[in-house]
Amino acid sequence: MNVPSDDLDRRLVVATQNGLPLVPRPYHRIAGQLGVSADEVMARLSKMLERGAIRRIGAVPNHYAIGYTANGMSVWDVPDARIDEFGARVGALEFVTHCYHRPRKLPEWPYNLFAMVHGGSRAEVLAKVGEIAGLLGSHCAAHDVLFSTDILKKTGLRIVT
């Protein structure tokens, strides 16, 4: 459900993609930069939040810095015919932060279900991955966990101006 973005939406993305100004009246500061009123900036951001063009406004923590030193991307080979059922159940586990159906890339990559699991140690993550394995049982033909060992880049979205 894509809604074409108009010019002000796009200019708001460009003005805030590096972050919100850390000043007492941040929306007024942005309005000044864009040459529109602060009311218009605030009304537009509220609309973007409402329709999901902004997921949320707030702090994005570095996982490592707040204690999640083990970050595992678990990947699973489950039957395509039942993947929506398994995806919903795995996604509902309280320790899974992202869960997606993605295409296999045969022969290199037989996995079609991706679930991110974060923890304070690899053992903790592997124990949680074991819970997913238990849930999927014999419906899962193979699985793996890919741990992140380095954040190479984490800037988020950047529209090129």
Binding site: N2, M48, R51, G52, I57, L157
Partner: peptide, 20 residues
């Protein structure tokens, strides 16, 4: 916390798929 990289960003998180 931004300087110490405890936070990687502070601001709106955009879902660009909702903007085309």
């Amino acid at each position: 916390m931004l300087d110490a990289r405890v936070l990687t960003r502070f601001g709106p998180m955009f879902q660009i798929e909702r903007m085309g």
